[in-house]
Simulated assay, not measured.
Amino acid sequence: MKRLTPAIAALALSACSLAPTAPSRAVYDLGPAPAVAGSTLAWRIADVTAPPWLATDGIAYRLTFQQAQRQEHYRDSLWAAPPAALLTQRLREQLAAVPSCAGRPAGLLAVNLDEFEQVFGSTTSSQAVLRVHATLWPAGTGPALQQHWRLERPAAPDAPGAVHALAQAVDDWLPQLGSWLSSSCQQ
């Protein structure tokens, strides 16, 4: 009987390793930043702000075909930081290549993240939605300038699809922001 006890214990332990385990949490960021030419930041950039419902690290989605007013979050997938913090980092990395207005001190750029979620039109069809607005306070004289953007990108109907499409929307938006900043020099 004494020989049987260790065998039973070994069998019980091996059975534990065969049991299904809970999936581990996946943590995402926006991925590597696209390469930029430039080495100094030409704009003063305030931290990106966002409404309270975007101040979490949850990856948000909305099932508009069921209840459009209800925002959900993927259970086992998270952002590495709240989206506004990820966007602040990406802005500071990417705007180094956008020259400031010649002969003027750098203006202050403030960005508000208004929407950053995956929107499902059906169980198999979704898109990532990035909605932001930026305010530029030129140094010295002149009124503040403001611009709004909304970008939608097709997304696979899962958390990795949301992450990929939202990161793509951010990277597609940044050149548009850079162009707007450059055009502000004419005003």
Rank of each mutant, 00 (worst) to 15 (best):
residue 83 P to M: 14
residue 12 A to C: 10
residue 4 L to S: 07
residue 61 Y to R: 05
residue 70 R to N: 06
residue 49 T to K: 12
residue 25 R to A: 08
residue 156 A to C: 04
residue 48 V to K: 03
residue 80 A to Q: 11
residue 157 P to Q: 15
residue 182 S to K: 12
residue 184 S to C: 02
residue 165 A to E: 03
residue 42 A to Q: 12
residue 68 A to W: 00
residue 59 I to V: 06
residue 58 G to W: 02
residue 80 A to H: 10
residue 31 G to C: 05
residue 20 P to M: 13
residue 28 Y to R: 09
residue 175 P to T: 06
residue 11 L to V: 11
residue 109 L to K: 04
residue 53 W to G: 11
residue 145 L to T: 14
residue 141 T to E: 08
residue 42 A to L: 11
residue 138 P to Q: 07
residue 156 A to S: 15
residue 187 Q to K: 08
residue 130 L to G: 05
residue 181 L to I: 10
residue 93 E to K: 15
residue 114 D to H: 09
residue 142 G to F: 05
residue 150 R to Y: 07
residue 162 A to L: 05
residue 91 L to V: 04
residue 52 P to N: 06
residue 12 A to W: 12
residue 137 W to H: 03
residue 59 I to D: 01
residue 7 A to M: 05
residue 121 G to I: 10
residue 159 A to H: 07
residue 18 L to S: 13
residue 29 D to F: 07
residue 90 R to D: 11
residue 106 A to F: 08
residue 134 A to F: 09
residue 82 P to H: 14
residue 23 P to T: 01
residue 136 L to H: 09
residue 113 L to M: 03
residue 93 E to Y: 06
residue 119 V to Y: 06
residue 87 L to D: 12
residue 106 A to H: 03
residue 94 Q to N: 07
residue 22 A to P: 01
residue 1 M to C: 04
residue 41 L to M: 10
residue 185 C to K: 12
